[in-house]
Design a protein around this nucleic acid. Sequence first.
DNA 1: TTATTCTATGTAACCGGTTTCACTATTCGC
DNA 2: GCGAATAGTGAAACCGGTTACATAGAATAA
Lengths: 329, 329
Amino acid sequence: MRQATIRDVAREANVSVASVSRTINGHSNVNPATRERVLAAVRALGYVPNAAARSLSMALSHTIGVVVPDLHGEFFSELIRGMDTAASATGYHLLLSTMHADLEEARHAIAAMNGRVDGLIVMATQAQPEELDALLPASIPAVLLNCADGGGRPVFTIDDRAGAAAIAAHFAALGKRNILHIMGPESNNDARDRRKGFEEELKRLAPSAKLTVVPGNYQEEAGRAAVRDMLNSGNKVDAIFAANDMMALGAMQELRTNALDVPGDVVVAGFDDIPLAGFLGLTTMRVHMDQLGAQAVECLTRLLEGKGGEERVRLVPDLVIRASTEKPQ
Amino acid sequence: MRQATIRDVAREANVSVASVSRTINGHSNVNPATRERVLAAVRALGYVPNAAARSLSMALSHTIGVVVPDLHGEFFSELIRGMDTAASATGYHLLLSTMHADLEEARHAIAAMNGRVDGLIVMATQAQPEELDALLPASIPAVLLNCADGGGRPVFTIDDRAGAAAIAAHFAALGKRNILHIMGPESNNDARDRRKGFEEELKRLAPSAKLTVVPGNYQEEAGRAAVRDMLNSGNKVDAIFAANDMMALGAMQELRTNALDVPGDVVVAGFDDIPLAGFLGLTTMRVHMDQLGAQAVECLTRLLEGKGGEERVRLVPDLVIRASTEKPQ
DNA sequence: TTATTCTATGTAACCGGTTTCACTATTCGC
DNA sequence: GCGAATAGTGAAACCGGTTACATAGAATAA
């Protein structure tokens, strides 16, 4: 069955399309009697305005384009949930494209959004600032997520350095002085920032502390391997900070397998606060992806309404202290 | 900066808009020299076709509208990931709306998609078939997720009954005869199906078994409470099937708190296979939300291309046997 | 050579809305 | 009771694409 158009409604109600449009959009200068006739016709025909036509003629779609990489697990859904909540609160919709790896795909995704979205939210963890800039159309506003540099565009990031620094402060306060950091992939911005933040804060608060950094890949097994190597080398650390929870959990398990007590002999902390961390009592930094998404959307809608310019927000994660660094009372 | 339009390109290349359009869309009847001039103009102006205009004139958007409830945790992201992968493989985009609770919101979300999408994928766990039918426009195809009845439309569901039956079979094979089922919310279709599938299969395979069913709400605490009640009542069950993993984990913890061995004294199984389940050794049914999403998209694209009609697919979850029902070797 | 096909291109209508502008019929001020 | 302001309405242009149709010129057939 063909969808009724505004002209069908106009014919049915014996008015012009202009009157129908005015009625639909709640303009004031419509006679109540006319309005009623139009609304009756709308109901009778089951008329629903065509969003593409409206976008075209108004040059406005009330839609936000979202381009994100293939995030794993909770993060993705929390980010989207946060965006969606903020967007629907202000009457916006979300056009979603996930971007698997390469930039060419991102370019294509963004091109396909031209005309359908009023603004863009782009998360490109690995892209270089200048690549990213070439990607984004100059014609519509964009907000970036988790980027080092936005080239004049608002950027919202998780403050990995501050988060890692909080762990360093926690370790320092506990009096730990021989510390192991299991890093994430070197290519990853987050991983580098977490290392840097941790290292700097530790040096500041406990200059005498010894810090060993070993590579990892965000997988549980990397945490295990790091602990095994540590034990084999005879290096007796008293605290471990892994760049994410999965590695921290691996490390914790391996320590216990080797009859070391956590937190008695070694304290362990991670980053992210995945659900498992709460269940297994891992101290970690809680990252609020939903807030990140919501704030990005709010910033973009502000931009779309002409108010607000560049912004640079770093969302600081919360330190969640659990049994892995604190003796049970 | 204003986006270049097709007329700008036509002027720049000294041709008509028709030639530009033909070049862009790869029609054959364009002179190579003209094509080159057009492509040069496109590059010079940074022209990107306006998707809204194209949708309008072709009555085709290459976009799929997705309306899903606010799913918790992994499910949402896996579902979307599955859809996105399948969609982008066939050149489609995803316009997402999450629907918090009420139908009015769903109606609004669907109305806003009119003209923007070629088809719909709708998941409405609580809506009645007739309500749902009234919601969906007759003008575009739709595929339903997790619905009892599609009223002629394709339906893709997780086969909760078969999944629950698999647990029943597992328990029966283990020789368990005094069994507790912790249900999900009564209002929930999934919860009712899981109970039904479990009950029926158990009756079939072990008619002598005694089954107690207690209410729950999918929260961890409900699992704990159910075990406490069970212990207080003196009912000595030897197997517990909770309608989801969180309740199963709560039950498992409470059993161990009360010095009961899992799986020695009581075996425990859940449903969903959340990441925690793997970590804590909980036997459960693995639900493949990504496959559900991907298959729904593939079905819809088939529908959009005119091939394929009604379909009813039940995706059977996999039984994953872990330490909570099986003695370690 | 002339009639006929074919290729390449342009003109203009159309998709379904919004909105400017012109116009008529009121209502208001005096 | 008359001119001015105002409310209500419709015709038509426009948004940026696609495409049916017309047409001119070149290639082919007779």
